[in-house]
Design a protein around this nucleic acid. Sequence first.
DNA 1: GCCAACGTTGGC
DNA 2: GCCAACGTTGGC
Length: 152
Amino acid sequence: MNYWLMKSEPDTFGIDDLFNRPGQTEHWDGVRNYQARNMMRDDMKIGDQVFFYHSNCDEPGIVGIMQVVREAYPDFTAFDPDDKHFDPKSNPDKPTWYMVDVKFVRKLSRNISLRELKLKTELGDLALLRRGNRLSIMPVNAEQWAFILGLE
DNA sequence: GCCAACGTTGGC
DNA sequence: GCCAACGTTGGC
């Protein structure tokens, strides 16, 4: 089993939005970065555990846990001209973009903030903390996962 | 709102 | 294939 971290802006889709979805499940659409897509398409498996990270907000940080419940399939929002993430170069016969379905597992008892994570030398290799990192999906190794949960 | 970092685009 | 211009991300 693998561990991941996925970012979302709480103003757009936060942990509470996932909690309130039917079945507490939602497709993770709108990823338009090849590196992030490749991880979803090639490496994300059912049962993988994912940190839900709130980005671009007052207190960016890890707020909850979800799990992968459906493996990669075409991101249909790329075919919709009215969708914010429409991509005219992607077509249903040969989709460029993929998504997975994720299900709410639990909220953390508190927001483990980016500010706090940066202070932990144990997390030196965490992609989130690397300079200039902009990926919206990134791997977390087992040690990092356990360490972060230990901060809760 | 600013701006650093980085990905993408398109002219050549 | 190079690289300048441009767009986006996301912390601050």
